[in-house]
């Protein structure tokens, strides 16, 4: 798979897919999309990068360990539900604030979805990279 064309295209493809995944994530509340799909797209992006440049390069490019990303996402998702502690509502109750400046409303629901995105992206890319690296060892 390490052809010249693929290796040339792969970084752009990865960047584009990551950008697209964030777009899909953020629009998910109103149009088709969301954290699960966005996370899968991000994971695929890393998998493609891994196939093109090998697992060590991908791990360097990712900065964080994929499982750390997943763990952070899980923590964010869980914490986002704790707003109920202050408002006296049940766990994971949505809280919304109007913010006309950035064009969409801010809420802990969006933060929860970002957590989902990070978990799926982290865990799935971890799986893909782990399998790719056993391939390398062989």
């Amino acid at each position: 798979m390490k052809t010249l064309i693929f290796r040339t295209v792969a970084p752009y493809l990865t960047a584009l897919m990551l950008l697209f995944s964030v777009f899909i994530l953020l629009r998910g509340h109103n149009e088709p999309g969301g954290g699960f799909i966005g996370g899968l797209i991000a994971a695929s992006a890393f998998a493609i990068y891994g196939i093109a440049f090998g697992v060590p390069a991908t791990r360097r490019a990712m900065w964080f360990h994929p499982i750390a990303i997943a763990g952070t996402g899980l923590l964010i998702a869980a914490l986002s539900g704790l707003t109920g502690l202050f408002s006296g509502t049940p766990l994971l109750t949505g809280v919304w604030t109007k913010s006309p400046i950035i064009g969409f409303d801010i809420s802990n629901v969006i933060i929860f979805d970002i957590g989902v995105y990070l978990v799926v992206a982290g865990a799935v890319s971890s799986i893909a990279l782990a399998l790719e690296s056993t391939e390398d060892n062989h």
């Binding site: 969301g34 699960f36 899968l40 799926v120 799935v124 799986i127 399998l131 056993t134």
Partner: peptide
């Protein structure tokens, strides 16, 4: 189903690695 698809995939990957 949406969450089920993602979970099935994780499960499948886990079983695959276990088999390996």
């Amino acid at each position: 189903i949406l969450t089920a698809i993602v979970i099935s995939f994780s499960f499948f990957a886990f079983l695959l690695v276990l088999a390996l």
